[in-house]
Nucleic acid binder design. Structure first.
Ligand SMILES: [Mn+2]
Ligand SMILES: [Mn+2]
Ligand SMILES: [Zn+2]
Ligand SMILES: [Zn+2]
Lengths: 148, 148
DNA sequence: TTACGTTTGCAAATGATATTCATTTAGCTT
DNA sequence: AAGCTAAATGAATATCATTTGCAAACGTAA
């Protein structure tokens, strides 16, 4: 399992930033890594709360998600209305999302050509890209079929 | 000016939906059309409030922005943190955005090939796209130069 | 073990947006 | 033109996600 690998890298990250190595932080890493789906923070808070003898409070979850974003293990992948959907991306290759506005299904995809074209656009504008997000909203196959 | 054209189309839209033609709604259309920049709703509310003998209240602004989105004259183009940046798109051709995370500058671009590739991806997943948003976050030329 | 800065949990604050409700208004229908 | 009814408005209040203040607990390094 590469979770241990990840945790040790996260430990390095914390040390290097002068932050402390705490139980709560690592519990949250474990939970997020084992959650396996795209998630919203409140969803995660509830899920963690339902596990027995859990440690982390809502504030700590929010604060740790922030840290994990800086660390690069988590990414905000979908912004819909006032909801933010995150994803645990450590180890996963970069990709974008199709979001069904009817059932909420999330489909992942990756197109190298799109990435290249983005780089080209950035160059054309002397813009240094740090990260990007492509969201395509629409109706998934199943929902489309149900409509008839 | 095509604002009148737009307002008359908006009027059709309202009638067709059984909504009413009111002063407030059209005042807001005028303000947004003349604002000329990407905007956040609170920013718009303040700006409208600063004009003299204005009609619309905060609630009406929020409600009308919603309507204009349904109508298609307004689009949520950037979601950054808990901020939503809108744009008056009526008449404007579709495009995407580069966002400087340092100074907030917004650069618009359009790449036909990217649009085509998106359609291709959707087809591959039997997904019916309704709309999409591509945000590229990074550092603009000016900010990059200032860094040295 | 001590000392000190960091983290935590909780409650309270925030900020954007939505909603409630009493009042006004738009758009019919006499 | 006057009345009628449903929709729109404004102000206050609620909601929801997220952040913050603060006292107590903890992690780290000497
Ligand atoms: Mn994903
Ligand atoms: Mn734009
Ligand atoms: Zn669906
Ligand atoms: Zn800049």
């Amino acid at each position: 399992m590469q979770v241990d690998e990840l945790k040790s890298r996260f430990e390095q990250f914390l040390k290097q930033k002068g932050y402390k190595i705490t139980k709560g932080r690592f519990e949250i890493v474990d939970k997020i890594a084992s959650y396996g789906k795209h998630f919203e923070i409140e969803e995660l808070v509830r899920w963690i709360a339902n596990q027995n003898k859990t440690v982390a409070s809502r504030s700590t979850v929010y604060r740790t998600v922030r840290l994990l974003q800086d660390f690069g293990a988590i990414r905000e992948v979908i912004k819909l209305g006032n909801r933010t959907i995150y994803e645990f991306v450590a180890g996963k290759p970069h990709h974008e999302h199709l979001i069904c506005v009817e059932c909420g299904k999330i489909i992942e995809f990756y197109k190298d050509e799109i990435e290249e074209l983005q780089d080209k656009v950035c160059e054309e504008h002397s813009f240094t890209p740090l990260n990007h997000r492509l969201e395509i909203f629409g109706i998934c196959k199943d929902c489309m079929e149900k409509r008839t």
